[in-house]
């Protein structure tokens, strides 16, 4: 099946727009469900997410802590990433 070039272009635009929309909202991934007080406290530390729509997600793999995503920016404060970092340090020293 041949796709019309115009349709392709429209689809590309739509996807790009969707991506831009995505960058306007923030995602908070945590190891367990956060209470609204906890979310408020995080918002205090990160003023940039105050005006944005905040989406909450739970990922148990993080073990503890949270990851904050704003568009393509990412702030990783999870134990999982700390452990990966630790593993890397050990490997580097061993070399």
């Amino acid at each position: 099946m041949k796709i019309k070039p115009r349709l392709k272009e429209e689809l590309r635009k739509y996807l790009l727009n969707k991506l831009r929309e995505e960058s306007k909202k923030a995602t908070l991934i945590s190891s367990h469900k956060l209470t609204s007080e906890q979310v408020d406290e995080i918002k205090l530390k990160f003023p940039s997410i105050k005006e944005k729509k905040l989406e909450l997600k739970v990922d148990e793999d993080l073990l503890a802590g949270f990851i904050l995503k704003e568009g393509s920016k990412i702030t990783d404060l999870s134990i999982k990433s700390k452990l990966i970092q630790f593993k890397k340090t050990i490997n580097e020293v061993a070399r």
Binding site: K69, S72, K73, I74, T75, D76, L77, F86, T89, V93
Partner: peptide, 16 residues
């Protein structure tokens, strides 16, 4: 020593 030399700072990185 290696771990002690690294300061614990909150940094924001680009991702994709």
């Amino acid at each position: 020593k290696e771990i002690g030399s690294k300061k614990d700072i909150v940094e924001t990185r680009e991702s994709g």
